[in-house]
Design a protein around this nucleic acid. Structure first.
Lengths: 218, 218
DNA sequence: CATTGTGAACTTATTCACAGCC
DNA sequence: GGCTGTGAATAAGTTCACAATG
């Protein structure tokens, strides 16, 4: 009777910052593996990412014991463990809504498939686009959302439409049965509890930078 | 003798999370203004964004007193104040390096100009692209980075190249005199102190969501 | 003996609660 | 009466420091 997940903290108690760093560890470990390194340590990982070694160990300790005292972490082993925690040890079917500039970029983004995400359908309001394909992905009318989501067993949605339509699209995605949403439109979406939502605003990141630059000299 | 900036906390003491929320407040205020609303309150702003009213007030209090007891915040006034704090009350000249899918999306992204960012030059390694224009932006060879940055008084750089070249590009941008960098490649860049750097990895955001979805049922 | 995992100390961030003001 | 600004209280997150371990 091997338990599937030896230590399971209540996920709700895991700070979002920890999950974020888990993603960073995973990237760094993937770089290490492609450099042929088999073993690493909390201090190596930490210094590469600009955080303390204690932080790295604490973060991982939320989920179990992955290290080997005196040795460190086996890179391949840790990658597997983190992918399992993040849920990226499986394939996720993703729908893209909005095939404008950003949508096309998302369709072409190689980083997704590397982490187990696969955009299997796209939706757009423009009749000229409907029925065509882009990067091998079929573009549907939004009216077919329900059936396509069911057909292709889509679990996640990417919203890359104008701010004005984003909430409507979110509602449709939720109604179609999607469980998680990443929103690239600069609005705060409201979604029912149980649906996970993350927002990305490309201008935000720039604003973080301008704040720092603008205030550099006092 | 109105002082330009009545209260100036040492910016280094302002938590990054506060600056992040400032960006959210700004978006929300911009929505309010386009709905014709002239006044708002910490609790309205907070509930729209899913944070407490006290949090909103504390965040703003880092930078001065912008509210009117019994009334709330004058929307236009607060927008102006936040833009000044974030540095987006002025125009920023931005260079884009890497005109692939993502680069093209960034070129076409309308949200930038709205916040005072203007991509004034693009760079790519592909000789076929060099010398052409996209969305009215000239594409240069990377060798001309120094002169173009100086010419156009570029202060910020967007990195949208492959992971493998990102560090090299960052070094070049810094050498050219850029003060801030937003990196879209999935690597941790090292930059000298004094240069502000922010990383965006599109797959991270999805991983946050899959973590939540994967762990929803215990 | 280098390195993990972890309780305890510390630091930072959030919320409470209320005085002061319009 | 409604709402801000803020000190005090609480909670959350990070670092320290060291016993345990292959």
């Amino acid at each position: 009777m091997s338990p599937t997940n030896p230590s399971r903290p209540n996920p709700a108690t895991v700070p979002a910052a920890v999950v974020n760093r888990l993603s960073m560890y995973l990237r760094e470990l993937q770089h290490l593996v492609s450099d042929g390194q088999e073993t690493t340590s909390s201090s190596e990982l930490g210094s590469r990412l600009g955080i303390t070694d204690a932080q790295v160990r604490k973060d991982l300790a939320y989920f179990g014991q992955f290290g080997h005292p005196g040795v460190g972490y086996r890179v391949g082993e840790l990658i597997k463990a983190i992918r399992k925690i993040l849920g990226t040890d499986r394939q996720w079917q993703v729908a893209l809504v909005g095939v404008g500039n950003l949508g096309r970029a998302l369709l072409g983004y190689r980083g997704f498939s590397r982490q187990g995400f696969s955009i299997v359908a796209a939706f757009d309001a423009d009749p000229a686009k409907i029925g065509t394909q882009l990067k091998g992905v079929q573009i549907f009318a939004i009216d077919h959302l329900n059936e396509v989501v069911a057909d292709k067993e889509i679990q996640l949605g990417l919203i890359a439409v104008q701010a004005a339509s984003a909430q409507k699209v979110a509602d449709l995605l939720v109604a179609a049965g999607v469980e998680g949403i990443v929103n690239f439109a600069p609005v705060t979406l409201s979604v029912p509890p149980g649906i996970c939502k993350v927002g990305v605003d490309l201008a935000w990141e720039l604003e973080q930078v301008t704040f720092a630059v603008a205030n550099k000299n006092r």
